[in-house]
Structure formats: structure tokens, C-alpha cells
């Protein structure tokens, strides 16, 4: 019997409205374990809302979000985090009064791994090193550059040993050199066989990092396939450039 790839995440008919505005409209897609999925689309197409629905920051108005076989719609963010979902934020969120070390430890204590004491410190140090911040453990995060803060955020997410990692425009706002470093970092994660959802505008990153892409427009899926396929899709080009260009 061939080994079926296990499904990590299955989004089924998810809708989210804000008042009269439909931000996410009947979305459905699947993500297998060890797969890297790009969630792309023009500004305001509902990508971040979708991430917020998966991570539990928002609750779906309708539909099912199945994580590792269980429907988690209605669960709060901390419960979903404890199931092994970790994320970064579109705008970096640092714990300003804490050191790099403590910021990263935050990820490892309360998730599904629940580390503490010396084990936690070693684990945090390891993750700080792997995002390239070794030696900066005791610095206050306020003193870091923007990319280093993004690194801290990634290390914090990794410290949770995530079974599903959500990167919300993690590469946005980086200069070309930093971007290259950033892409290499995510590539490393991918080669480790992590399960990742990437929301991104940077097309180079999408092409090189993603196994598959889901393209959103006006809250709905307009294309689903390999990066090469979807980026050649007429509907996708129309969504990005306007209908006149087709």
C-alpha cells in the first residue's frame, strides 16, 4: 500500500464577514504534511484574514478548518497554538521590554512542547543560532534592526516546534540582500520537511519556495496549483493587473 501523504490542514468552505463586507468567501484548500503552500493574491484579497482564521485570531463565520484531522473552528488562538500552530505577524510584534532570549523562549513554553528550565534555554539558544542571531541572546529587542526583529519572530515561532508554521509576509520590507538571506532561511526550513503556509508578495520567493500556490482574489480562490501553473493562469494575471491586460 502506497503511503498516503497525511493532510495537515484542510480548509472547507470557510467564510468570514465583517458587518456587510465578505473578507473571505467560501474558501477551500488542502495542505499536506511537509508541503510548503504559498497563499498569494493582490492587496486586500483576504490573505491575512485567512491566516488569522487558521491561527484562531479570528473566528470563521461559516465552514470548517480541519487541523490534523480535527475541526478547530471556534477554538481560541491559544488552543490552536497548543495544537502546534505557530505564526509570525505582518507587522513585527516584539515583546519590547524583554531580551532576544526571552522573546524566543516565549514560543517554547506554552505550546505543545511545554519546555522549561535549562531545556528551554538550550532550545531557545539553538533556534536563535539557526536564524543567525547567535551572540545577540541578551540584547534588548528594541535595539535590533528590522530584519533581526523578523529573525527573532521566526525563532520564536520555531521554538514552538510547530507542526504547522504560518508566515505572514515574513519577507516584506527587507532590502535585496536581506531578502536573499531570508529566502535561504525559509529554504532551510523547507528542506527540513516542515509544513508551512507562506503569505507573500515577493514573487521570486514564491517561485523558489512553494510546492503549491493558492491564489486569492476578493476573498475567494481563483487558482490552485504549482507556482508555474498559477502564475501563468489568465484569471491570476487579470486579478493582479486588471482585466484590460488579458
Amino acid at each position: 500500500m502506497a503511503a498516503e501523504p497525511h493532510t495537515a490542514l484542510s480548509v472547507r468552505g470557510v467564510t468570514r464577514t465583517f458587518g456587510g463586507l465578505v473578507a473571505v468567501d467560501d474558501m477551500s484548500f488542502e495542505l499536506a504534511e511537509h508541503e510548503v503552500l504559498g497563499l498569494i493574491g493582490p492587496n486586500g484579497s483576504g490573505k491575512t484574514t485567512m491566516i488569522n482564521l487558521i491561527s484562531g485570531a479570528l473566528k470563521a463565520s461559516r465552514g470548517e478548518i480541519v487541523l490534523f484531522g480535527e475541526n478547530v473552528v471556534g477554538e481560541s488562538a491559544h488552543a490552536i497554538a497548543r495544537r502546534g500552530v505557530a505564526r509570525t505577524f505582518q507587522l513585527v510584534r516584539m515583546l519590547e521590554s524583554m531580551s532576544v532570549m526571552e522573546n524566543v523562549e516565549t514560543g517554547g513554553v506554552f505550546g505543545h512542547a511545554r519546555r522549561w528550565g535549562a531545556e528551554l534555554r538550550d532550545h531557545a539558544r539553538h533556534n536563535i543560532a539557526r536564524v543567525g542571531l547567535a551572540g545577540k541572546e541578551d540584547e534588548p529587542v528594541g535595539a535590533l534592526t528590522y530584519i533581526d526583529q523578523k529573525r527573532v519572530e521566526l525563532a520564536r515561532a520555531l521554538a514552538a516546534d510547530p507542526r504547522l508554521l504560518l508566515l505572514d509576509e515574513w519577507l516584506a520590507g527587507l532590502n535585496p540582500t536581506e531578502l536573499q538571506t531570508g529566502i535561504e532561511l525559509v529554504e532551510d526550513l523547507r528542506s527540513e520537511g516542515r509544513t508551512i503556509v507562506i503569505v507573500e508578495h515577493v514573487m521570486d520567493a514564491i517561485r523558489s519556495l512553494c510546492d503549491r500556490c493558492v491564489v486569492m482574489n476578493s476573498g475567494a480562490v481563483i487558482a490552485d496549483g504549482t507556482p508555474r501553473e498559477v502564475l501563468a493562469d489568465d484569471a491570476v494575471i487579470a486579478a493582479y493587473l486588471g482585466d484590460a491586460h488579458v
Binding site: G56, A57, H78, A81, F89, T106
Partner: peptide
């Protein structure tokens, strides 16, 4: 927000 998404 960070606290909640860290599982607290």
C-alpha cells in the same frame, strides 16, 4: 496577541 498565539 503574542501571548495568545504562543499558547497562553
Amino acid at each position: 496577541v503574542v501571548a495568545r498565539h504562543s499558547g497562553i
